[in-house]
Design a protein around this nucleic acid. Structure first.
Lengths: 210, 210
DNA sequence: CAGCATCCGCTTTGATACTG
DNA sequence: CAGTATCAAAGCGGATGCTG
């Protein structure tokens, strides 16, 4: 990217992360941790492969990303955020918060990956009873299932499933997003076609209090 | 900008504000309030005039900016952030904070406008004695002077000068930035060529406490 | 198959000139 | 002052091919 050539922290930040795709690559690495090239491509529908390679090189040079060889038997390259790269989390969160209203609607003709739910979940959900025993909700939509867990008074989301979750929800991305962020209640979510099994109190536990 | 077509708040936010120049236009309007076209051009060195016009049109359509005719006798068009546009402040602050380390060095061959100091000043400075009478520091560098004031326990910065400031500092952008954000002390700033007149306690009042 | 590099057509940007 | 018009250069997207 052509630099703005301004002595201004904002402009210099944009010189580094303002190019197309860069912050979405950061999103993938924040959510998924260390990623293979192919994992990144799957999480970034529409990116041209040469652009992904170029961005990763630039981000490595800028100190945002490090490249490491996975130990045998995997023997593949892993990309990981550096400390400096992780520090972009507040930027991603601020943008995600601002963009929240833009996805408060049914999903249109857009791509979706279930692990993207991790962002709004960790942004909007809270543990309303941090001293109770932890709970787990399994969230199923589209591809891989996600686990929503209370831990240390925070709500965490990660790919995976559980043998004994307190509840299991499934539905479209917008149904689950609306339900989890408390924009709609369980009855409304069911009316719209979402499925919920297990303890409704688990949902109350993490939905943001109005 | 081509949209990412992802059902993700971050991607949708970037669809709106991710294009080149857009967040810098937001910076100008956040710092300066309502601006004429020419004011914006002056605060965005290097922008092509057709791009500025195009971005303003897009931002108006996206609901970030409104256009109003200034009352006589000025009779010019003013651009102003809408409520939705103002809500980008946390995004600009997060990026500015992340970019801070990138300008913790002498100014190189880069453009600088004194009003850009408002961002780091309001971001890093605090009123360390909110119950004392308010103070004012005049900051002179490059073009127009800036005023740094304590008000309601916060530190505010705006273009302008004062008849009886508690102190007046002048120097290069990097000297003033280093001094105000407490990265260097007064003696060091003077050693590097900055001038300071008035009450050194005014500086102590607002420099961030380590 | 994972991890790219190359090529090509299209879009966006930047610089300059010009206008009501 | 507040833009529009024009055009070259750079960036992007898509397809394809190469290498360990």
């Amino acid at each position: 990217m052509k630099t703005y050539r301004e002595y201004c922290a904002l402009a210099q930040a944009l010189d580094v992360v303002g190019e197309r795709w860069t912050l979405l690559i950061v999103r993938e690495l924040l959510i998924q941790g260390a990623c293979r090239y192919t994992d990144l491509r799957n999480g970034l529908p529409g990116i041209a492969t040469n652009l992904l390679a170029e961005r990763l090189r630039e981000m490595e040079k800028a100190g945002l990303v490090s490249r490491e060889d996975a130990p045998p038997p995997v023997a593949t390259t892993l990309f990981r955020l550096t400390k400096r790269g992780e520090e972009l989390k507040p930027v991603v969160e601020a943008l995600g918060r601002w963009g929240g209203p833009l996805v408060a609607r049914p999903i249109a003709d857009e791509e979706f990956r279930s692990h993207w739910l991790a962002l709004p979940i960790e942004l909007h959900l809270t543990d309303n009873a941090p001293h109770e025993p932890p709970i787990t909700i399994e969230v199923r939509t589209g591809g891989e299932p996600m686990l929503v867990e209370t831990v240390d008074g925070r709500v965490r989301a990660r790919p995976g499933s559980s043998d004994h979750p307190n509840a299991v929800v499934s539905g479209t991305a917008s149904q689950l997003l609306g339900l989890l962020t408390g924009k709609i209640d369980l009855a409304e979510a069911r009316r719209r076609g979402a499925k919920f099994e297990g303890d409704p109190k688990a949902l109350d536990r993490v939905q943001p209090r109005p």
